[in-house]
Design a protein around this nucleic acid. Structure first.
Ligand SMILES: Nc1ncnc2c1ncn2[C@@H]1O[C@H](COP(=O)(O)OP(=O)(O)OP(=O)(O)O)[C@@H](O)[C@H]1O
Length: 729
DNA sequence: GAATAAGTTGTTTTT
DNA sequence: CAACTTATTC
């Protein structure tokens, strides 16, 4: 890569060669922001002779970090191990592991994820005897995390917590923080806060990092929150060579504390900011860009900016309005099948949706067509109960103050230690102000508390953990795990149950074991590093770019990615935009989300919606997304296939891509006689039962089993060809 | 204390 | 719908 600078336009080139001082690069989607950062890092090292260890770059996900490292290393033809490139959270853990110095913490701290936080918060709510209808764990977690993201400590909150609810919240916040501390644990927000506190309290440490990192970069700057901003400011405070890149129109994490003011404040806080705007889009066709621009300009809280491209005009995006969600999924499935038959790479195809639950029907259709796919996000692998159990053991082994993990695994698998026993143990722990694990030492002393059985079980458990602790000091992680699973009889226990679920759990555990082996082979890290890695993994990171597979992904997770052919589905009011967006500002964020979705596409965009969709087990009738109107007449509308008869005789005028292709004769749907085809969501009239709605269809031997919810409340399953009923409109 | 049955609730997005 | 909680029984 002799001349990587040739791959840049003039403005990009300017960004890269103006290396000194604060630089704010604002630019629309696909204008090469990420490319600027990677190339600039390479430029600094190659032409400015900057030492790689003087480089620090914050990315949004670990995957983005990995990609950045890969690209830089390609440009430089050398490894980039000494650069710090990673998410805020992982960089902070790195700092804490090195320099953490707090009286009640050790460097083997646990990281509490959102679920752990809520568990802890539930305890707090119970202790304060608060009404759990008002103070739901969700609400409290949200509020506390919101405060922490803003950098508001309990002490500061006290100054303006006046409402009765806020006063209670303050109490909760205080107890919560104490509990974290006694668990030797940090939540996600703490990772950043504690580094800021560390810098502010220890000048030596602060100076070390300030001197070391001569060049600091932040990608996806529009989604940084207040504490991240503070951290950036601190860490770049000496050299002030801070280069941030972002796009205000792509700010989609406000709900997580992202503060768009960070863009505005930048120029105030850094003198002589070099602001550069990139406005040429290299990613998308003109037609795609037109739609994206036309949607985003409806935001009023926005600095207008022009984004143009010299790319080809391309195909016009299409819009398909399906009668119901299954039809929509079939349409998308068969279009994807067609694309692949035409020779398009599956990895260049993505289905984007607003919420995870929407992936299901599309998965079913892809499975039917034997199309490989990967779902990014949703139920995370490491979130499965069996994996969390094992992680719980590991966490407890290296941090025995971690009561959350203790509670999780003390009776999993069942070993006769129930809630009552644990509550008694917790009494000892509270009285002595120690962890649950340490309270185990007093079980014999407090023998009147426990019956013989419970006492025996508790002592057995203590021996188990102590054994594991011992093992952990001298063995590799996978040896420890083998021993653990053996001793705990986790797998043998599952084998005895022998259900489909148990089998899949065993498979998951085996997959987990091999991922541990992978970690050991590639990184040679400690157990703590392994656990940290797992805790901070994001959804996008988890899924390897395995092989050629279609991606199913939320719009949030798709930020920063690009695909040749993008399907944006379920474009309905209440879904996208979400029903939860009530305020104007929420609506604007939804619109930005739409903008992100649209600008992921390089060549083709396929939009679709359904008139009815199941949610929470009942049918919702949906209106098309208001964003569709905002796209103007740049769309080719494909009329809904309103009856199944039409399905088999597609009109000539129908867009080619949307012709139904029935791949295999086995497809039961093609065998159904035309006379009585029902679809879920249809209204029907039965001669005896009256009006009702079709809630489920089961295809069976060329006929349909139709489940109908009648208006009188009765739920009946009827044989499609026999039942005296008809569809009404 | 564990296993089952019945009832209830709801995340939109995730480091 | 499915995941989670509560009630009931052994
Ligand atoms: N000067 C250039 N010449 C050709 N292609 C370019 C140039 N700059 C960027 N690209 C290409 O344009 C696409 C978008 O670039 P990149 O991902 O860096 O943009 P971005 O601004 O970070 O996008 P987003 O805001 O959507 O994350 C990439 O495929 C990249 O390779």
């Amino acid at each position: 890569m002799e001349n990587f600078l040739n791959e840049l336009n003039d403005v990009q080139y300017k960004c890269i060669t103006e290396t000194e001082g604060p630089q704010l690069i604002l630019a629309g989607a696909g204008s090469g922001k990420t490319r600027v950062v990677t190339t600039k890092i390479a430029y600094l090292v190659k032409y400015e002779k900057v030492n790689p260890q003087e480089i620090l770059a914050f990315t949004f996900t670990n995957k983005a970090a990995k990609e950045m490292k890969d690209r830089v290393s390609k440009l430089l033809e050398s490894d980039v191990e000494r650069m710090w490139i990673g998410t805020f959270h992982s960089m902070c853990v790195r700092i804490l592991r090195r320099d953490l110095n707090l009286p009640n913490y050790t460097k083997n701290f646990s990281i509490f994820d959102t679920t752990d936080q809520k568990t802890l918060i539930k305890e707090c709510i119970r202790e304060l005897n608060l009404d759990d209808k008002i103070y739901t764990p969700n609400y409290v977690q949200n509020r506390i995390s919101g405060l922490k993201n803003e950098g508001i400590t309990p002490l500061e909150f006290e100054k303006f917590a006046f409402s009765p609810i806020d006063k209670k919240l303050l109490d909760l916040y205080k107890i919560y923080e104490n509990k974290l501390e006694s668990n030797n644990a940090f939540d996600f927000d703490d990772l950043i806060i504690k580094v800021i506190e560390l810098f502010n309290s220890d000048n030596m440490v602060k100076t070390y990092y300030q001197q070391r990192f001569r060049y600091v970069f932040v990608d996806e700057y529009q989604d940084t929150n207040n504490i991240q901003y503070q951290l950036i400011k601190l860490i770049s405070g000496l050299h002030k060579n801070i280069c941030v890149v972002g796009d205000a129109d792509q700010s989609i994490y406000k709900w997580r504390g992202a503060n768009i003011n960070n863009i505005l404040n930048f120029e105030k806080d850094y003198n002589n900011t070099n602001q550069i705007i990139l406005s040429q889009n290299y990613r998308s066709t003109q037609n795609i860009l037109n739609i994206a621009n036309s949607v985003i300009q409806n935001n009023t809280e926005r600095i207008k900016k022009d984004l143009w491209t010299s790319n080809l005009e391309g195909d016009k995006p299409t819009l398909y309005e399906a009668g119901n969600s299954t039809e929509e999924a079939i349409q998308v499935g068969s279009t994807i099948e067609k694309l692949i038959q035409e020779g398009k790479s599956p990895s260049e195809i993505a289905i984007l949706y607003r919420s995870n639950y929407l992936s299901r029907e599309f998965e079913e259709q892809l499975i039917k067509r034997d199309i490989k796919y990967k779902v990014i996000g949703g139920i995370k692998f490491y979130d499965r109960a069996e994996i969390k159990d094992i992680l719980g053991y590991l966490r407890l082994i290296i941090n025995d103050d971690d009561d959350i993990s203790f509670r999780r695994i003390v009776n999993s698998p069942k070993r006769g230690i129930g809630d009552v026993t644990i509550d008694k143990l917790a009494e000892i722990a509270i009285e002595k102000n120690i962890s649950l694990y340490k309270a185990l030492d007093y079980v014999e002393e407090y023998d009147k508390l426990f019956d013989a059985r419970a006492q025996k079980n508790l002592i057995g458990f203590k021996n188990l953990i102590d054994n594991l602790k011992l093992k952990s000091t001298s063995n590799s992680i996978s040896e420890l795990l083998d021993f653990l699973l053996e001793r705990v009889e986790y797998i043998t226990g599952l084998e005895k149950i022998d259900t489909v679920e148990a089998r899949s759990k065993i498979e998951n555990i085996e997959e987990f074991l091999s991922s541990v082996k992978n970690f050991e082979d590639s990184e040679e890290g400690t157990l703590h590093e392994f656990l940290v890695g797992v805790s901070l993994l994001s959804d996008v990171d988890k899924t390897e770019n395995l092989d050629e597979a279609v991606s199913l992904i939320t719009v949030h997770s798709a930020k920063g990615l690009e695909f040749g052919h993008v399907f944006i589905v379920a474009l309905e009011e209440g879904v996208f935009p979400s029903a939860y967006a009530e305020l104007d500002e929420d609506m604007e964020e939804e619109r930005r989300l739409m903008y992100v979705a649209l600008t992921r596409a390089k060549d083709n965009l396929y939009l679709s919606s359904a008139k009815s969709r199941m949610r929470h087990g009942k049918i919702n009738y949906q209106l098309p997304s208001s964003f569709i109107d905002e796209m103007g007449d740049n769309l080719i509308k494909i009329s809904p296939v309103n009856s199944n008869k039409v399905r088999f005789q597609p009109k000539e005028t129908t867009n080619k891509n949307y012709v139904y292709t029935s791949k295999k004769g086995v497809d039961s749907k093609t065998n159904i006689p035309n006379s009585n085809i029902y679809n879920t969501g249809q209204k029907i009239k039965h001669s005896k039962w009256g009006m009702g709605i079709v809630t489920q269809i089961i295809e069976s031997q060329g006929d349909q089993l139709v489940t109908v919810l009648f208006d009188n409340g009765e739920l009946k399953t009827l044989i499609g060809s026999m039942a005296p009923m008809e569809v009404v409109s």
